[in-house]
């Protein structure tokens, strides 16, 4: 957050000077308690414009984001479309009992965590390594061109990404199987076999996001004090040593914070891409909580049960994110928001 703590009673010092006369008048009025309402009214009369600017967004948040939170009560209800959210009868924790005795749901929870774990192990180091390598490239325009290209996939839609994956991994037409047949092996039906889903999904994620993810680390590297490198050169250190002894320790706080954010988002597997890439034969390894919710709720119409699953997911995610935020604050006295 920007540093505005140098203010007096919520008003920055500079403004105090500008509005000195008004402030004086306000203070005189607040001295008598019954004039308090006059002060409040006066405040709104003077500052109504900023409230007018805020109001549309507040209403939008209430209508589109907070009203669904009220609707979440169907997780504890026997919801029927005709009775509506408020009119449906309460049934307590029944849906949650159903969920935790449902093998498919348990499997979806397990898959979510497993895929996130793979994303963490393979996906998290990738942008760091890439940033460290970019830092060693001397040729400026070569570096620039490479960066331009590796950032690009981030801006491509998941439908297109899935389209590319489906085309490239196709058993008959795909380039991957063309190579496999050159090597003399039989074609592999990658997208219909459960054991291939996770490698393909995580690999696609790295291909799409590693480049863009490196921006944060490159910025951290750019912030390292150059005199550290200068004295290392005097001491006769080589580039490899400097990377390990200076660059990596210097960007460690950034790495830690990004790691914590990542762990906080464990429940957030990009399910849009899962929906586009999985099929019934790969549900076993591919089905995550949100895709399960999508099928149960939006495709089969079991809104209440699916909402319960969604609530479970959201609560776990909330606890993780809050913990992550607290941890990162403690680690570096840096607030994420």
């Amino acid at each position: 957050m920007s540093d505005r703590n140098s203010d007096v009673g919520g008003i920055p010092v500079e403004e105090v000077v500008v509005e000195a006369s008004e402030a004086l008048r306000d203070r005189r009025q607040t001295r008598t308690p019954d004039k308090k309402w006059v002060t409040v009214l006066d405040h709104f009369r003077r500052e109504w414009q900023i409230y007018a600017m805020l109001l549309p967004t507040i209403i939008w948040f209430l209508v589109f984001l907070y009203k669904p939170m009220y609707g979440l009560q169907i997780a504890f209800k026997d919801y029927s479309i005709f009775r509506g959210v408020a009119g449906s009868p309460w049934i307590g924790w029944e849906h949650f009992q159903t969920l935790f005795s449902n093998d498919q749901f348990i499997r979806a929870v397990r898959n979510t965590i497993t895929i996130s774990f793979y994303n963490l192990i393979f996906g998290f180091p990738a942008p760091i390594i890439l940033a460290l390598m970019f830092n060693e490239v001397l040729h400026a325009s070569y570096k620039r061109t490479a960066q331009t290209i590796v950032y690009l996939p981030h801006f491509i839609s998941s439908v297109i990404i899935a389209g590319i994956v489906i085309t490239a991994f196709s058993p008959t037409a795909g380039i991957i199987n063309t190579f496999i047949s050159w090597l003399g092996y039989d074609p592999v039906y990658f997208l219909t076999q459960p054991q291939w889903f996770r490698p393909i999904f995580v690999g696609t994620g790295i291909w799409q996001e590693a480049g863009f993810g490196s921006i944060v680390f490159l910025a951290a590297i750019a912030g390292v004090n150059p005199s550290l490198y200068e004295s290392a050169v005097v001491d006769g250190a080589n580039r490899w040593q400097m990377m390990w002894k200076i660059t990596i320790p210097s960007i460690l706080p950034t790495i830690l914070i990004m790691l914590i954010i990542r762990i906080g988002n464990v429940m957030e597997v990009s399910f849009e891409l899962v929906i586009l890439l999985y099929q019934p034969s790969t549900y076993e390894t591919a089905d995550v909580v949100n895709t399960w919710v999508y099928r149960q709720g939006l495709q089969s119409g079991q809104y209440d049960l699916a909402a319960a699953a969604g609530l479970f997911n959201a609560v776990v995610a909330f606890v993780l994110v809050m913990t992550a935020n607290t941890l990162s604050r403690r680690f570096s006295r840096t607030s994420l928001w």
Binding site: R4, D7, G10, I11, P12, E15, H43, E47, I50, Y51, L54, T57, I58, F61, F64, L65, Y66, K67, P68, M69, G71, L72, I74, V85, N290, V293, Y294, G297, L298, Y303, A306, A307, G310, L311, N313, A314, A317, F318, V321, M322, W337
Partner: peptide
Amino acid sequence: PQLKGRRFFNLFIAFTMWFNAGLIPFFLN
């Protein structure tokens, strides 16, 4: 800075980044 309830409004908005009702309630809404 003169916005009253500034902390509340900030939290009101930021809260939706940490918690959302999920697909089904959003769809029904």
